[in-house]
Design a protein around this nucleic acid. Sequence first.
DNA 1: AAATTAAACGTAAATTAAACGTTTAACTAA
DNA 2: TTAGTTAAACGTTTAATTTACGTTTAATTT
Lengths: 234, 234
Amino acid sequence: MNTVTSYSNAKPIFVAVDNVIFGFDVAAERLKILLFKRQIEPFKGRWSLVGSFVKPEESTLSASMRILSKFTGLSDVFLEQLRCYGAVDRDPEDRVISIAYYSLIQLDEPQKKLVEVHNAAWFELQDLPNLVLDHEHMVEDALARLKENARRRPVGFNLLPAKFTLPQLFKLYQEIYQLPIDDRNFRKKILATGLLNKLGTKDKSGSKKGAFHYAFDRSKYIELEMQGYHIEFH
Amino acid sequence: MNTVTSYSNAKPIFVAVDNVIFGFDVAAERLKILLFKRQIEPFKGRWSLVGSFVKPEESTLSASMRILSKFTGLSDVFLEQLRCYGAVDRDPEDRVISIAYYSLIQLDEPQKKLVEVHNAAWFELQDLPNLVLDHEHMVEDALARLKENARRRPVGFNLLPAKFTLPQLFKLYQEIYQLPIDDRNFRKKILATGLLNKLGTKDKSGSKKGAFHYAFDRSKYIELEMQGYHIEFH
DNA sequence: AAATTAAACGTAAATTAAACGTTTAACTAA
DNA sequence: TTAGTTAAACGTTTAATTTACGTTTAATTT
């Protein structure tokens, strides 16, 4: 790149990324979002999505991954762009546009402990605090996107451990859609895809009888997808 | 906004918008995209999506509307954000991120004549020239988005005149999906929504018999949508 | 051994999608 | 004026999918 650019009659703008990080608390059967206390003025100390300015030497995606990794320690997880928020007055301090990303991670016990390091916390969707700037709008959009995606693509599995049970998956989908689902039809439909491998083991935390473990067969899904096959969950 | 910002340790970035403008050529029965010859270096004179840098006093959406209006003369048309393209090296000249938008307009005769003013031209999808930067990627993404949207929302009507015929609508959907559709089932499904009002008049340009004019009932659609009703076309 | 509880399994009815063939309206040419 | 032509409009049957429910099973507790 040139030091003296031919774009010099344009004026550069601050660019930030903000991450809507979803985690499913399997024990509590609740979908949660990771928030942290904003570190800079204005609105320092208020609850915020995790975010950062984009550095000149990193892509917006890299910036999002950097932040995600900083707050969760994770690097190889589901992460997708949501959209750009570009209103002029969205930040009272200066002109800043923000690219929102959303990601789906496993909210296990080690993960829960991590939050204390960064003034962060996991919140239930029904119980979110007021957020800075347009972050509430971002959360709303991210949730809508998650619902869409969960219907058309097997994204839900990113929120569960590698071994999960059908009741867990069922409860996750109910949490995502915020709707009661018929458990028998759900089971039939999800098994009919052939994308779940039944394991021999059981999880007995939920009942005396115990529920069989299953694993999502990602390679089979990719194969089907390449053949133009489309799946609809729920 | 402050002149001296507390964000001064961040470095601002050039922000552009690029528009993927779709038009349906009813006579030719072809979906087309508006391109123009880039005005600035690098790649001056090469085919490009219509775009511009975002000014400090306008939102990214406003910038997109400004460009759309400049090239088509239209202001109240379908326009939605596609996504942000934020790779570091997407522009060899300098760090520039671009927010892509896509819009759907009527490609009528007056519109076709407008293009000469701006070194612009309408291209068939199958016949696009090489485009600058990552604009081919943007077109690909916009087409994928149009397909998705056309299935779930009545966006197709934005590409047709207020009065259109069922054969025209049918051909538009075939063009969008790039697939042959059964015309009898299409007709049934689209009429079953109750969203098309049959007008008394006929369009005789396509046949001796002539095809009845229809109009899309937008207010009825909005009503249905608010009741949580979801429609699937095709 | 009986009771309890979540998990797992199954079927019939209703709805929707897919696959087709035929008729109609208006013009054109014999 | 009549037969031919062409796209538009209409309709039915079959297959597939979705919906709505009731019952059985496995393991534990009393």
